[in-house]
Write a protein that binds this DNA or RNA. Structure first.
Lengths: 190, 190, 190, 190
DNA sequence: GATGAATGAGTGTTCATTCAT
DNA sequence: CATGAATGAACACTCATTCAT
């Protein structure tokens, strides 16, 4: 309900009806609407991060892992949107205690990606890339693709795995030309 | 006010006082709080897209233009956050007329990036990249960096131009190693 | 509250407090202040019309029935005022659906009186009067007496039944002299 | 505007525009919206009462004068409605000073009718009727007819003078049968 | 434990009124 | 004199929260 209508436009009664329980019952499990929202975020983000962690820490090449992460996010687009929203919005309106948790999780999430890249660099699979920057690139790319999957579902190629493979391939080779000398060195003089 | 407190937590009275006008005066120029929000979005997004368009269509190498775009977004972090939020959230709660406009602007924005890449490819500056995918990568990366600049300002290197240069450099060369054969072909077997 | 203060000057909160319930509770039973007003009107008018119908359709002479109707209206002065107000004001500001209902009830009310007069004419109790005109005379007279009972309570003879009898007597014999020829025929030449 | 929309639904700005003047200009001539309403009432009622006074005090038979009064009210239906509304509503929400004036005018109005009837009785034109009661009958009948002229304009015979003549005729001869003995004496036993 | 009727704090919006021009 | 942009008091209405059943 929160995803569809937004936090403020979703009434507790709607949420309860959707869950097949009475309005008052919600308050037996959550002390407030705000806490319910935070728990939902917590759950979505924890699930997401745990999945990313598992995928990033698994066996296989870095590229395979990257593809798996992208495909997973696309497959869980709806839940990923909450994560994306969260990455962008921060924790506006949330309680301080939750904000602290949130910043930690964000860092953890970026850290997981960084760790995965680190291993890739050491194994020679990756070039000597800036891991922090690439963590942002990967997270941001996923968010953008997820958002598009949600707001323009018809235009997105349906198969997450295939899209993930293409995206990973593009990230791998970079924007610049492969078979010739870097031309970047003098781009500021042009 | 909307950026700081969120739409629902910012009262019209706060907004008016902040602007140094009376509460009722707001309603001389906007027919509702919702419309005010939409106009703010419209303004922020139009400014943003116009700037991107100018930067993407200007003189200079593709890489220089890309750096300029990233630097601009980082410099306008606050405004860019609205754009980013918008990219992620879509137009939940907005009027249908606004949603239509919004989808159009999003496509336009991606189109501008695609156009810039197209020129780069034709001039040989870029490899034969997938422009749609790269539009997402660029937009997403910017959003992610902007978000971090806002929710963890202390941790971000202060100089947008320098950060932009680094990011562009990373995107240029890609994740994969430069001096050896592509190893992507068999990555799923490794 | 609406009777005392008028619709616009009576706050929902006042009405609720008067009823011994909370402000919000009103909205569990009425969708808006306007609807509450309409329901009050509906109730008052239905009660009134039902009573008139019963009295007009009962046993006894037409004159007795007329007296009973007048006495009843005077006895229910407060409620009758709503009806009177309604007869005069129409349904200004009410919803179209209510207006339709209202016009129907007004016609019904006049129709009841007309029907009663019809029977009186057929039984020879009444002269060959214009029933439509007399319906207006009766309704109007009642309204005027009720209004006076409310705005100048001290000046009104306290006993409704006695007043009703006097009024009916006057209506019965008419303005003109009884013991001589109609002088109306040439009144325009005088 | 007040007649059409009701006092509270007519905005000062509407009234001013209708009058072809600026909103602020209204306040050069009236100290408040309430005072404007009171002045309108005052004007309408004074006009009405003055006209009734002139008609009631003029030359001619009582019946001719009665007809003229009824026809005048019907011809001025719109203005008469304000008077009627006023008769029914009293001065709810008005200032004390206005209420005092209002009660006086109401009495004056009834007094004028009574005076006219008095003369008719003395000249033998009328029977020995109860003047106070008949003042109410006349005023009430007029109000009821005016109201109907306004809320169901299509159903009302168009010509006020003709309708006035019919109404006066009915009032003259009364409800009871003319050509036989009063049967009213025993109506309570029937 | 579960419920939903009742509540009232909170807020978007209107519009009579003011006053600088 | 006339104006209409600006104002803020006032109020209808919503909905998170409570608690008797």
């Amino acid at each position: 309900m929160f995803s569809q209508k937004g936090f403020h436009d979703a009434k507790i009664e709607d949420v309860a009806l959707e869950a097949g329980i009475g309005k008052g019952t919600v308050y037996l499990y959550f002390s407030s609407k705000q806490e319910l929202l935070e728990e939902i975020y917590r759950y979505a983000i924890q699930q997401y991060v745990a999945a990313i962690k598992a995928l990033a820490g698994g066996e296989g090449s870095t590229r395979a892992k990257l593809e798996a992460i992208i495909a997973h996010a696309l497959g869980m687009a709806h839940m990923s949107r909450e994560v994306a929203r969260f990455v962008i919005e921060g924790a506006t309106g949330m309680r301080e205690e939750f904000k602290v948790w949130a910043v930690g999780v964000k860092e953890e999430n970026l850290g997981i990606i960084r760790g995965m890249l680190e291993i890739g660099i050491q194994s020679g699979e990756l070039g000597p890339v800036d891991q922090q920057i690439w963590a942002h690139i990967i997270v941001g790319t996923i968010n953008s693709l997820v958002a598009r999957a949600l707001w323009a579902p018809g235009r997105v190629r349906a198969e997450p795995r295939e899209l993930a493979r293409t995206v990973a391939g593009q990230l791998w080779s970079g924007l610049g030309p492969r078979d010739q000398e870097e031309i970047a060195g003098d781009h500021r003089n042009s």
